[in-house]
C-alpha cells in the first residue's frame, strides 16, 4: 500500500503535542514557529539547557526543510501547498521529539540515507571532528545550506537520528526524520 499522508500526519500528532504544522515552509513561518515554541517551553518551565538544545535542533530542522524542500511535486496526487513540509513536536516522557516530514525525489534518497547512517555511527568526539572538518573545508551552497545541519542536530541532541522513507510512487518518497532531545 502506498503512503497515506493524512494517516501519517494524524498518527504523528498523537500524544502530548506541543506543535503540529503542515503546509508551506517559509521564512515567516519559521519565525512564527520559533516564537511560539519558545513561549511554550518557557511556560512548560523546561530547564534552560534543554530549552536551548530544543531551540537549536528546531532551527536546524526547519532551515533544512526550508533549504531542501522542493517547490512543486509533480505526480503527487495530494493538494499540497508549495514548499510543502510537516513539523510536529511532541513531549514523550522525558524527551521532546521533533519530527519533520517532506517529499523527496527518489534520486536523493541514497545520498540522504548514507549521510544519516554515517552520522549515526559516529561518537560524540567523531561528530565534533566531522563538524569542524566541514566547517573549515566546505563552502556554503547557493541554497545557504552548508552540509552541517544534520551533524549539528546529532551533536546537540546527543541521540541517533531516526528516519524512514515511505514510498509514495516511482519518483517520490516521503522522508520522515525524528530527533529526540
Amino acid at each position: 500500500m502506498s503512503f497515506n499522508l493524512k494517516e501519517y500526519y494524524s498518527n504523528l500528532s498523537k500524544g502530548d503535542v506541543i506543535l503540529a504544522y503542515k503546509g508551506s515552509i517559509t521564512s515567516e513561518l519559521i519565525n512564527d514557529i520559533l516564537e511560539a515554541v519558545e513561549k511554550k517551553l518557557e511556560e512548560a518551565d523546561a530547564d534552560s539547557k534543554l530549552r536551548k538544545k530544543i531551540y537549536n535542533v528546531l532551527v536546524e530542522s526547519l532551515q533544512n526543510l526550508f533549504h531542501h524542500i522542493e517547490m512543486a511535486h509533480e505526480g503527487i496526487q495530494e493538494e499540497l501547498d508549495p514548499k510543502f513540509g510537516i513539523l510536529v513536536i511532541i513531549k514523550d516522557g522525558e524527551f521532546y521529539k521533533v519530527t519533520t516530514g517532506n517529499f523527496v525525489n527518489a534520486k536523493r534518497i541514497k545520498f540522504l540515507k548514507e549521510k544519516i547512517d554515517k552520522i549515526n555511527t559516529l561518537s560524540k568526539d567523531e561528530l565534533k571532528d566531522m563538524y569542524k572538518f566541514i566547517l573549515n573545508h566546505q563552502k556554503l551552497s547557493a541554497k545557504g545550506g552548508g552540509g552541517l545541519g544534520l551533524v549539528d542536530i546529532a551533536r546537540k541532541s546527543g541521540n541517533k537520528l531516526e528516519y524512514d522513507f515511505y514510498q509514495y510512487n516511482d519518483d517520490y518518497y516521503f522522508f520522515n526524520l525524528t530527533i529526540s532531545v
Binding site: E60, Q63, L135, L140, G144, G146, L148, D152
Partner: peptide
C-alpha cells in the same frame, strides 16, 4: 545566544 550552522561558516 544561538547561531545556526549557516551562520557558523560566516
Amino acid at each position: 545566544e544561538y547561531f545556526n550552522t549557516s551562520s557558523s561558516k560566516c
